[in-house]
């Protein structure tokens, strides 16, 4: 059995880990205001691929900002969910980046984005089959081996499902975590978006995940559309404030996970820094409430 080759806890330790506060996604537009105003934030998170360049302002500002804030590096291009072997050149770039900035966290997606040497710049869905489970576990093993640290794997937002999937998504994720020892990045917005798109219970989905393995939570905004049958279709657009329904689901998730580092993700329609910080403060208040409950 292939699964016996994967230890239950995993040989890789997480990097230092993020404080269980609230953070924001870091965009170049906010480099200067962040350094000038230094708002209270638990951490900042960057997309790994935006910093895979030799030098210049991206590294300059990231280094200065990391002197004041914990850092999470979030990959969007490793294609861990694909059927092809990982792109070793890309993995090497990732290793270089992590060695340079020594982030407190590294995470990637359960999705694929490259195939046949072409990068499609989107997080594409995969079939949840035994064969693909082997691929994904091999990929996560390879990443952790190459980087020498534990990674977090993020649950995806999807618009379609594969008919030959034999695992549910939480079953598939739980099995990857069990076999590879990686942690879970629970994207609460993705759970909400997929639950609406596919008609499942978001609470049941979260209940089926190994919530004690959650190392970080993502919150974001979505866009509303409808499919060709007129059914609601939510798009994981990261271009709006966190929706009220997603805040509610976040509260439910926190009851399962306890206080966990939480990110406000915003990749488009970027508001001023103060607006994002206010959203992070909303998450921070909920985190404090959970900590008090536990204590």
């Amino acid at each position: 059995m292939k699964s016996d080759q994967h230890s239950q806890t995993g040989p890789y330790k997480p990097p230092a880990g993020l404080p269980s506060g609230a953070g924001i996604g870091l965009k170049p537009e906010h480099f200067q205001p962040l350094l000038e105003t230094r708002p209270k934030l638990g951490f900042v998170e960057v997309h790994a691929e935006n910093y895979m360049v030799a030098g210049g302002p991206m590294h300059h500002y990231l280094q200065r900002i990391h002197e004041h804030y914990a850092l999470s590096v979030h990959g969007v291009g490793l294609s861990i969910g694909g059927s092809e072997p990982l792109d070793e050149a890309h993995l090497e770039r990732l290793k270089t980046l992590i060695a340079r900035h020594q982030p407190e966290r590294f995470s990637e997606h359960l999705a694929w984005s490259s195939h046949n040497g072409q990068f499609m710049n989107d997080l594409l869905p995969l079939p949840y089959t035994p064969e693909r489970l082997e691929n994904v576990c091999d990929h996560v093993d390879r990443v952790q081996e190459k980087l020498g640290i534990q990674m977090l794997l993020e649950n995806p937002a999807t618009y379609l499902q594969y008919r030959d999937s034999s695992y549910t998504e939480p079953e598939f994720i739980a099995e990857v975590i069990r076999r590879t020892g990686c942690g879970l990045l629970l994207d609460v917005n993705n759970v909400y978006v997929s639950a609406i798109n596919h008609g499942f219970s978001s609470h049941a989905y979260i209940d089926a995940l190994p919530c004690h393995r959650v190392g970080e939570i993502h919150l974001a905004g979505f866009a509303r559309d409808s499919d060709s049958q007129g059914a609601p279709l939510l798009i994981d657009s990261h271009d709006a404030p966190v929706a009220e329904a997603v805040w509610k689901l976040y509260d439910y998730a926190l009851e399962q996970t306890g206080a966990v580092a939480t990110l406000i993700e915003r990749d488009a329609n970027l508001p001023p820094l103060t607006i994002l910080v206010a959203e992070a403060q909303n998450a921070a208040r909920r985190l404090q409430a959970i900590s008090r409950e536990v204590a």
Binding site: D122, P125, P127, R163, S228, L233
Partner: peptide
């Protein structure tokens, strides 16, 4: 048409859903 083997929960062939991915790829690039 969308590829064989993908579908929405209500068995709809999911052309508009597949178009979300198409749109993401092209628009983001």
């Amino acid at each position: 048409a969308p590829p064989d083997g993908v579908s929405a929960w209500d068995s709809e062939t999911g052309s508009k859903r597949f178009d979300v991915y198409r749109n993401n790829v092209i628009v983001s690039l």
